[in-house]
């Protein structure tokens, strides 16, 4: 008996040339690079791309970066790149890259850490540092589609200055719509009412869950390895169903 293969048939994700069309400093350590793809592709909020750099001797390095821009804006992909002192790709972007430069990129990649407007809520997004990038794509998608799905971002940063996309997030929060922002600043006193001044823990999450209009449906956690471990354990400690938590980890 012969059965047809059910293997997924997906076209290859091809490398393409992209041009840097804008560079925007976000924080002292994070800069956004905007890319115009030569071949447009659609993506879902939360997906990532791979970037490939080639040295004159043929040496290549590639890294994955989450897309921070909204799916509605596929003609200019935003990647928020943190400068890592020991890296080889991020120093290129921070020290050498200029508007008009061409690099190689491919995507979109990832079918798990995604939020689609059709998914119901409430949704909790928990991020730290540059881990906000894929969450920002979800938040922008949420805003662009005028979604009424309750969505709360709990964002951890070292200082007020280190909050990536700070002004945009504050403006969205001030609309008092379906999106709420809670900041937790680990090395300074919080500036706003309802914000925190410590690392994410279970008591904080228990309080935050009470700010949602109904029981939490899904959580997305993104940041460094230690952050994701601590935050997802704190969520489980706050009685969040482990199967409803999706994680994405950065770096090593």
């Amino acid at each position: 008996m012969i059965e047809a293969s059910k293997s997924p048939i997906t076209p290859a994700i091809r490398w393409q040339k992209v041009t840097i069309n804008k560079i925007q400093k976000r924080t002292p350590t994070v800069t956004s690079f905007f890319f115009t793809p030569s071949v447009l592709f659609s993506f879902r909020a939360g997906q990532h791309v791979e970037v490939r750099l080639t040295a004159p001797d043929g040496y290549r390095a590639q890294r994955a970066y989450s897309i921070a821009s909204a799916p509605e804006n596929s003609g200019s992909l935003e990647l928020a790149i943190e400068k890592l002192e020991t890296g080889e790709v991020s120093p290129f972007f921070h020290e050498a890259a200029q508007v008009g430069d061409e690099i190689e990129l491919r995507g979109p990649i990832g079918g798990h850490f995604i939020w689609q407007g059709s998914d119901s809520g409430p949704i909790l997004l928990a991020g730290a540092g540059s881990g906000v990038a894929p969450l920002m794509s979800m938040i922008r998608h949420h805003a662009n589609t005028r979604s009424d799905v309750p969505m709360l971002l709990l964002l951890s940063a070292r200082s007020w200055e280190d909050v990536i996309f700070r002004d945009e997030l504050l403006a969205l929060d001030e609309k008092k719509g379906a999106f709420k922002l809670v900041l937790t600043i680990t090395r300074e006193m919080p500036k706003r009412e309802g914000d925190y001044g410590r690392r994410i823990d279970t008591p904080m999450l228990v309080e935050i869950l009470k700010r949602l209009p109904s029981p939490l449906k899904r959580t997305y956690v993104c940041g460094s390895n230690p952050f994701v471990t601590v935050a997802s354990e704190a969520l489980v400690g706050a009685a969040v169903e482990p199967g409803s938590i999706r994680t994405e980890r950065y770096g090593q």
Partner: peptide, 29 residues
């Protein structure tokens, strides 16, 4: 299994075999 059945990650775009020497990272590589 009688046939090659995609697992969780393979259903989400990762390669069915995944040979690092042939860079089979994603479906279609």
């Amino acid at each position: 299994t009688e046939r090659d059945t995609a697992g969780f990650w393979e259903e989400r775009g990762y390669h069915m075999y995944g040979d690092p020497w042939r860079e089979q990272r994603y479906s279609g590589d």
